[in-house]
Computed example of a mutant assay.
Amino acid sequence: MYTGLPRKVFECLLAWIIPAVRKRGARDELDPSQKLLLVMMRVRYNFPQSDLAFRFNIDQSTVSRILNQWIPMLKVQLKQLIRWPQTTIGPIDPPYNLLPNAVAIIDGTEIFIERPSNLATQKSSYSDYKSHTTVKYLVAIDTFTGVFVYVSPGFSGNSSDRFTIEHSGILDQLKPGQRILADKGYNARDLFAQKRCFLTIPSFLSEGRLTAQEGLNSQTIASARIRVENAIKRLKEYKALSETLSNRVNKKIVDDMVLVAGALCNLKQKLIK
Rank of each mutant, 00 (worst) to 15 (best):
P72V: 05
I18E: 15
G108H: 05
P100T: 13
I66C: 02
H132K: 09
G154Q: 00
I221D: 04
L99N: 06
L81R: 11
D142M: 00
S246I: 06
Q69H: 08
K233N: 15
G185M: 02
P6M: 05
L13M: 00
Q194A: 10
D28L: 01
K136T: 04
S64C: 12
A102W: 09
S117Y: 12
E229R: 07
S33L: 03
S127Y: 01
L74S: 05
F204S: 13
N68C: 12
R227Q: 10
I18R: 07
V149H: 00
L264F: 08
Q194G: 12
L5I: 09
Y129N: 01
F47L: 12
N247F: 02
G262Y: 01
T88A: 09
E110D: 05
K195F: 05
R189F: 05
N97A: 11
A231D: 03
N118F: 09
G154N: 06
L38V: 08
S160R: 00
P100A: 11
L199D: 00
G262L: 06
I221H: 01
K8S: 14
A104F: 01
I201T: 13
L210C: 10
L36K: 07
K195V: 03
L138I: 09
T109I: 13
G262M: 12
A188I: 10
Q219P: 00
K8Q: 14
F204Q: 13
L37E: 08
W84I: 10
A263N: 08
L259R: 13
V21F: 13
T244H: 07
I111Y: 00
S152T: 07
L205Y: 14
K136P: 03
G177W: 04
D161P: 11
F192W: 04
T121L: 14
L138V: 05
C197P: 01
L271Y: 09
L52A: 12
L271M: 12
D172T: 03
T244S: 07
G208L: 04
D128W: 01
C197E: 02
R24H: 15
K236N: 13
L37C: 02
Y129E: 03
Y150F: 14
S160T: 06
S159W: 01
I58F: 04
K123I: 14
D183F: 09
L174P: 04
